[in-house]
Design a protein around this nucleic acid. Structure first.
Lengths: 202, 202, 202, 202
DNA sequence: GATGAATGAGTGTTCATTCAT
DNA sequence: AATGAATGAACACTCATTCAT
């Protein structure tokens, strides 16, 4: 009995996963507006109603895709902060950890849309995003205080540059298409960033 | 007669300009999908049909807004290349010239949408964008050859970082909201970029 | 064995009763269209499928609620007719008996909906309603013959007025909200009706 | 030019009228929920979008049908009050005037639905309906004061009986199907009502 | 028998596009 | 050329009904 139930539940979870995976792909390809619920339903091979069984609104489906990415990013930020290493190494850790899951950039570049889309999830979004930024700023300021980072460069410039490193197109091109090893990719990205914000030693 | 025609033509051009200006504003505010042709028509004060006299498709209207931005960016790239200065100065010139007209970034951040939108203008887009990138790569490679830029950093990383500097959110926040002087803004951006890709002097 | 079966049957009946009671409440509150099968299932605490075990269609569930009300009304009509009293007293008996169980009026006021809803139960409806009316007409005609009721007033006017007395809003307002005693309510209603159709004595 | 415009406008008005007429018929036949916008569009012979050109919401279409009936009824109430005749004659005037436009009853019997439907028109509804009732009550109370109407019968019973006289089924049956002259119909209805609420002369 | 996940036809509504005037 | 009423395909979403377990 328990088995049967957990089987059903497993199938349900799997189906939900299928929907989410397909929807994520379409979302990245076409963007929020051009992703239709019909398309997802057909693509996954379920009825439209089934989609709505799992996700009451299109918004909710998309938010379910996007929210864990934000959470995971925030988690990494917090892990990084807690690391007993230098601010630079913290940020490097964060870069290495999150660069491949580059979906996060999608979020940030799509923020104009996202705010409209996530009206109903405003609270959650406004809970997570500021934490991410203040976490990054914390590390950057720590680095400034320690004389590692350029004290004249506002942290906003630094964090903006940092966030913009999570650019999925470059990742796709270099790692996926041109088969550049991830470590090499990461070290290049890291170099671009740190040599930029490092205080120049005289 | 010629005069009357050219008068009419002038009026037409003016009207077209009015449409484009209004549409650009709405486009930036609301994004492609939430900008409706009705809204433009009402806002400009013409009939919806008139819009379609000038632009056969919504896509075309938007492309007409976006295309000159790309062209102008390409023009700046070519100007920069032709400048009798160092590659670094060429890129600085390009940054200063285009950073404020940050519309170009709109394109890039909206790429998820844009690719779907500009299916019918694929040819033109594929005409301009590669030229832009190869122009930038040309300057970067020149800098590499001259020993100015890190020879180990693929130009794609450099250009990606460069392009991502055209981030309108930061500009809005710092220059428009916090009243940072444009020159200061530009120098920060420039610093972030160049100290990053510059070869470290031993 | 018989016992167990009848136990099961009893449980089934009870469950059916539960469904009907809950559905009737919702039906009266929200009307046919805004009463959803989901809501009923959740409210009663059974699975949606179970509803369909008892009632193959939503229509059938509703008809099962409504039909006994019609039958009971018809029963009262027949009882009234059989009473060894004057036609007026027969109708008074009917009024007093059915006024409070004013559900019958629901039927009549919802006729716009009902006719569409009960397409599949047309036969049964057309079995009962005409009997009700002809019963009432019988009493009215009897009264006419006996010189009690206005001979010039077609019975259709009389029965229409009679039926329209079963108006649940007034009942709710006066008895439920303003705590008017039911007997007083009934006597007012009765007065309105009879003084209207009574032959004026010269 | 003026002619052409007024021609267009006339056509528009005519089309709107066509929509309203068709919709009213369907509304009466099927009720609010079973009247679909598709059906109306097809029935009238226009595209669905055209419906929405005239009426932004289904609610609005229905309200446009219903509102003038309420207004006209209210108008008649006010006219009746202003008449320099006895309260009885005022009410008779009202009956004669409005009985044929029996759509008003639809309103009242459908009030359960209507309140939900007309959320967005609540203000207007709550503007008109209470005025209608207080107008009728005014006449009834006047009659009571003058010793014409039963002082023991609450006006609510009287007005409820009055309103319920506007029963379209009886009208259809007698006047439309059985070709009873309207005047005869009206006088019967009037009799049913007044002999009922008249104070019995001792 | 009981379940509730799955279904899919149907709904109201939007909006880019067309075309008679 | 300019208009804006008309179009209809497309969309997100609902819900009575079914059926595998």
């Amino acid at each position: 009995m328990t088995t049967r139930i957990s089987l059903k539940e497993k199938q349900q979870k799997e189906r939900e996963q299928l929907i989410l995976e397909y929807a994520e792909r379409v979302l990245l390809e076409k963007g929020y507006h051009d992703m239709s619920m019909d398309e997802i339903a057909i693509g996954v091979g379920v009825a439209k109603g089934t989609l709505y069984l799992h996700f009451p609104k299109k918004e909710d489906l998309v938010f379910t895709i996007v929210e864990p990415k934000m959470q995971s990013f925030l988690g990494s930020v917090e892990e990084a902060i807690a690391l007993p290493v230098s601010p630079k190494e913290k940020l490097e850790f964060l870069l290495n950890r999150e660069l491949s899951g580059a979906f996060f950039q999608f979020l940030l570049t799509s923020i104009p849309d996202m705010t409209t889309i996530f009206k109903s999830h405003e609270a959650e979004v406004n809970e997570i995003l500021p934490k991410i930024f203040s976490g990054i700023h914390e590390m950057l300021n720590e680095g400034k205080r320690e004389g590692l980072f350029d004290p004249d460069l506002p942290v906003e410039f630094m964090s903006s540059a940092f966030i913009n490193l999570f650019e999925p197109h470059l990742y796709k091109e270099m790692v996926e298409a041109r088969k550049m090893p991830v470590e090499v990719f990461n070290s290049h990205v890291s170099n671009v960033f740190f040599r930029g914000i490092m205080k120049i030693k005289e």
